[in-house]
Amino acid sequence: MSNRQNGGRTVSTAALLKQCTENAQVMVYVILLVLLLLAQILSPGYLKPSHVAGILRLASFMGIAAIGQNLTILTGGIDLSIANTITFANIIGAQLMMGRDENMLKAFLAVIVMGLVIGTVNGAGIRFLKIPPFIMTLGVGTVVQGIFLIYTKGAPKGNAAPFLRSICGQSMFGIISGIVIFWLIFAVAAVIILKKTPYGRKIYSVGINEQAARFSGIHTGWMIFSVYMLSAVIAAIAGFLLVGYTGTSFLDVGTSYNTKTIAAVIIGGTAISGGKGGYLGTVAGAVIMTVLDDFLTIVSIPEAGRQIMQGVIILMLVLIYSREKKK
């Protein structure tokens, strides 16, 4: 898929090259392409459609959760409660569904409400008490972790409804999983909102210069509040969908998602200082993270090694991007 997108752009090689070097959001697709080719060379058959579809399916959870992270980072903040929100949503979802389709709506609504509550607390602390986002969300994340531990007494119950399972299953439309379609819809919505609506413009304004945004008549407090709200709700949805993938829930199902979503956003060319970037790059970022993880698994590098890899990649990319900015 991403292959095609790049092919369509090679109208003028020079223009493309210039754009690539200047625009991190384009560069990330080039990196993805190189990575995929490399994987294909090192492990023939890597790019066969069924495997690519599998990767996209895996990437979609991270991709969806990264929408919220992308919004908070664009405003110059960060959301470190995503991981535990995902886990909690996963637990509530499984527990209320109990493997039956008719419980799905109820479970979904409960998860949304949970997301709203977490988002409200985050947003209120950051907006009204002016607590730095990372520490507010870190604290809230810990509380959420405690709550789901108490709620489950350490042993989560329940499992996915068959319908949810089929959405997140191997093939809904040909070899494409339903979850990938979901992600596509989410992605298109995110890109359009960021690019074409006043809300999106305001997010960029707040991220680049909050004071100037306020002087320009933007209700910056509300903008900040709303992105944490959205981030928590989107993470909750991702956690809910994840039940369909895992079948049941685990206490650490979301643990890696803080680092992963941040990595996806940063790899995708969004500046950690806010105001620059967009979701289009994050999509590629999520796929890159998944491909790397997947490929390292194939060449049997243990979990620990993959974790180190994640850290190193984030560091390398922020270094490269910030160097470019200095020039």
Binding site: I78, F134, N258, T259, I262, I266, I272, A304, G305, R306, Q307, I308, M309, Q310, G311, V312, I314, L315, V318
Partner: peptide, 14 residues
């Protein structure tokens, strides 16, 4: 923040 989030992954992994 971002540096130490990344190095957390590295140190934990090591």
């Amino acid at each position: 923040i971002i540096v130490t989030i990344a190095t957390t992954a590295v140190f934990d992994g090591l």
